[in-house]
Design a protein around this nucleic acid. Structure first.
Lengths: 348, 348
DNA sequence: TATGCGCGGGACATTTTACGTCCCTAAAAG
DNA sequence: CTTTTAGGGACGTAAAATGTCCCGCGCATA
């Protein structure tokens, strides 16, 4: 049966959403019966008319009965509720997870894909695919999109497809060189995204490990300044969230630096900033680019991070409360919720 | 698994249809890949635009890939196909049954509901519910609906619901008294339907067992003539199909009459006519009303009959080839197809 | 018994979506 | 090199979904 559900989600993703909607509606009616349209619309946070369409269909299917006092669930309706209940967890596992995350992290939209990026390679692909879809649906003419580096964003870039709206879109790396492999650097990914979509891109070429003086000198370079100004106007920010120590190692921090970082309690990394569990900045990479306050000004902040090992990092970065959409996976979501519950247990 | 589908279908009536459509589409692409939209539209007997919507969704889900040469199924798509294959038989059992019946009986639309009316009481209810839905969707302003008697039609009547279009609709009994219980007579059902829908009805009160002379006399009655004329203009005919002997007994034929009827090879009954296996009229009730040629002139002829025991009767009446919609059940459908195959085996 | 209140259901303008249709450019195929 | 066929874009129209309001009717309360 698990099989069938998975296939349904692949083949009829739209219908599964509808199914969830109807199920929850039926459940609400069952609990509140008899109840009228208008009251129910408020409770279900939907409009009267849209609810009406649904209840009329449920009535057609013989699951609801209408009286002058309001609508009630028929016996058949109850049977449907009962028999569907054990499947709901499986059917809506992911969407339910997403909703719980949405609530706990206070992020407007959360999408959870199946699997665990730590365990299966293909989950990263899935994250990228979904991320690409979200970006495509959020994009507008003449947008400036700030992008960071990392494996998740690389996967997103790979899954982008051309579209006319992208013609006028600029992809700009969020920060300068961050000492990663070239195929994971923001500069590279900005160019890949531009190539995949038909958009244009800018580069922010700042060598790794600059001295503060050299940095200051670069900030006087017109080319650099121009890109930085463009970055600040970014309406969309696409970024990954990293585990602090993992990122630091990938960026070839020395053992000593690593230990210092660990001392600060850093757990997450984004845009070259390192945050501790409370969401406080405890360290930042010596490079230039998008500042955290710029991210806050962006209309759409799309975060991608998967794998149970990323749970703490996601939770930490969510404290910034600047995200619009979080795309993660089942593994991270479950780990995150488990952790969150422990914390809550400590201070009830 | 069967469970899941059934329940889901209560909340999502067209789930299986969509699933089947998408599955077949994916399968077609797999066999013909790489293939273009227009070519595929012809093969799948659909329009280009509607197919486009589907393939774009399948592409979004990562099941299809597009190249300049046409579209192809991705590995993920193949995986879906393979995993869905073993479920197809179960999933599409009923729709497939319906299609086979449609083909064998040459009826434009066939609907098969689950179960066997001979074995489970609730199947009759289901037949009625579906029948009511079909009637509601076929009805038009100012229609004249001719209705017969019988348990199936009674069930349909019970499941009708009011709707503004029915205001101008007239329900007319197809034939005069036929010696059944009053709650199963056409007259009664016409009035029930009118009451349930908000329509109006006419009665055709002809006493049982009239002598030919008396019949003739009634045919001169203005009241009777008026209803008969109305009947001939019926755009929709709703009727059941009976087993010849069962109906005869229900109409209190004497043992002698029964034996005579049996001699003629009568197997089915409808509108008071009795037909043999070849579909020939072998007997008719001595009453007045809708003639078979009037049925042929009707635009919509909705037949309802369920239960394996009705298989022969359904097959027999289908020879009239005047039906538009047949609503039956799994039991009847399987029995009918089995019987049909035997007959074919005799004369290949 | 009188009287609101909330009910389902109808009606209708408006928005949004789906669909049919045609065109364009690019890449295979001949 | 030409021709055919591909996917993708564009756009007007038809159809469905939706927002909004109204109505008569039971039920509950006064």
């Amino acid at each position: 049966m698990r099989d069938l559900i998975e296939i349904q989600q692949k083949l009829l993703p739209d219908l599964v959403d509808v199914l969830r909607k109807r199920y929850m509606l039926l459940q609400s009616i069952f609990h509140l019966q008899p109840i009228g349209r208008r009251t129910l619309a408020q409770v279900s946070s939907t409009t009267e008319r849209i609810l009406r369409g649904e209840v009329e269909l449920l009535k057609e299917m013989g699951l609801l009965s209408f009286t002058a006092a309001g609508m009630s669930v028929t016996e058949e309706g109850q049977r449907v509720l009962e028999r569907l209940e054990p499947m709901v967890a499986e059917l809506f596992g992911l969407t339910e997870l997403a909703q719980r995350l949405q609530h706990r992290l206070k992020i407007p939209e959360v999408i959870v894909v199946q699997g665990d990026a730590d365990r299966s390679e293909w989950v990263k692909q899935e994250l990228g695919r979904v991320g690409a879809r979200v970006l495509k649906q959020r994009i507008r003419e003449r947008d400036v999109v700030a992008v960071t580096g990392g494996t998740s964003i690389a996967s997103l870039a790979e899954h982008l497809t051309p579209s006319p709206v992208f013609r006028s879109v600029q992809f700009v790396p969020a920060r300068g060189g961050l000492g990663e492999k070239v195929e994971l650097q923001a500069n590279t990914l900005a160019s890949v995204m531009a190539a995949k979509t038909g958009g244009t891109y800018r580069l922010l070429h700042v060598p790794d490990r600059l001295s503060p003086d050299a940095l200051q000198a670069l900030l006087d370079e017109p080319q650099v300044v121009e890109v930085l100004e463009l970055l600040r106007t970014a309406r969309i920010v696409v970024h990954g969230i990293g585990d602090a120590l993992v990122m630091a190692k990938r960026r070839k921090y020395s053992p000593q630096e690593l230990e210092e970082l660990e001392q600060t309690g850093a757990v997450s990394e984004a845009f070259g900033y390192y945050f501790d569990e409370a969401g406080e900045i405890v360290h930042r990479m010596p490079t230039i680019g998008l500042q955290l306050e710029d991210v806050r000004k962006a209309e759409v902040v799309l975060s991608i991070a998967g794998g149970a090992s990323k749970a703490k990092a996601i939770l930490s970065f969510a404290k910034q409360s600047c995200q619009s959409v979080l795309i993660t996976d089942e593994g991270a979501a479950r780990a995150l919720l488990a952790e969150g519950n422990e914390k809550e247990g400590e201070q009830p």
